[in-house]
Amino acid sequence: TEVDLHLGDITIKLKDVSEEIVKRAKELFKNGWSAEFVKKWIEEAVK
């Protein structure tokens, strides 16, 4: 499945990412993480 994760003005296309990771990524962004950091976190999380 593909998900578009909207973080501010940046959209990250996610492939084969669990709902849990998407939820967590949104929380991290809301908590002040930059979109770049969230993207890196996701990449690490799906390895």
Results as ranks from 00 to 15, higher is better:
Ile21Glu: 01
Glu2Gly: 07
Gly8Cys: 04
Phe37Gly: 09
Asp4Pro: 04
Ala25Asp: 00
Leu5Cys: 04
Arg24Asn: 05
Glu20Asp: 13
Val3Phe: 14
Ala45Ser: 07
Trp41Arg: 00
Arg24Gln: 13
Ile10Cys: 08
Glu20Val: 09
Trp33Glu: 06
Val22Thr: 05
Lys40Asn: 11
Leu14Phe: 06
Glu19Leu: 11
Thr11Ile: 14
Thr1Phe: 10
Asp4Leu: 15
Lys15Tyr: 15
Leu28Ile: 03
Glu20Asn: 09
Arg24His: 12
Thr1Gly: 13
Lys13Gln: 09
Lys23Asp: 12
Leu5Ser: 02
Lys23Val: 12
Ile10Ser: 05
Gly8Met: 04
Lys39Phe: 15
Ala35Asn: 03
Ser34Gly: 07
Lys23Pro: 00
Ser34Leu: 05
Lys13Gly: 06
Ser18Ala: 12
Lys26Asp: 03
Ile10Val: 12
Lys26Leu: 15
Gly8Glu: 04
Phe29His: 04
Val3Trp: 08
Glu44Cys: 15
Ile42Trp: 01
Ile42Leu: 10
Ala45Glu: 12
Asn31Ile: 09
Lys39Asn: 04
Ala35His: 05
Lys47Val: 11
Asn31Arg: 13
Gly8Val: 03
Lys30Ala: 15
Glu36Lys: 05
Trp33Val: 06
Ile42Asn: 00
His6Tyr: 06
Glu43Ala: 12
Leu28Cys: 03
Gly32Arg: 02
Thr1Asp: 13
Lys13Glu: 05
Thr11Glu: 05
Ala45Thr: 12
Ile12Glu: 03
Ile10Asp: 05
Arg24Ser: 06
Val3Glu: 10
Lys13Pro: 09
Asp16Phe: 09
Asn31Gln: 14
Glu43Ile: 15
Glu2Pro: 07
Leu7Cys: 05
Trp33Leu: 10
Gly32Leu: 02
Lys13Phe: 10
Glu36Thr: 07
Glu44Arg: 08
Trp41Asp: 00
Trp33Ala: 13
Leu28Glu: 01
Ala45Arg: 09
Glu36Val: 08
Lys47Cys: 10
Phe37Gln: 14
Glu20Arg: 09
Glu43Cys: 10
Ile10Leu: 11
Ile10Phe: 12
Leu28Lys: 03
Thr11Asn: 05
Thr1Asn: 14
Arg24Asp: 04
Val38Met: 02
Ile42Gln: 00
Val3Gln: 10
Ile12Cys: 05
Asn31Cys: 15
Lys30Ser: 11
Lys13Ser: 11
Ile21Met: 08
Lys47Trp: 04
Phe37Asn: 11
Leu5Phe: 06
Glu20Lys: 07
Ile12Leu: 14
Lys15Gln: 09
Glu2Ala: 09
Ala45Asn: 09
Ile10Lys: 05
Val17Ile: 08
Leu14Lys: 01
Phe29Ala: 02
Ile21Leu: 09
Leu14Asn: 02
Trp33Met: 12
Lys30Gln: 14
Lys13Trp: 08
Ala35Val: 13
Ser34Arg: 05
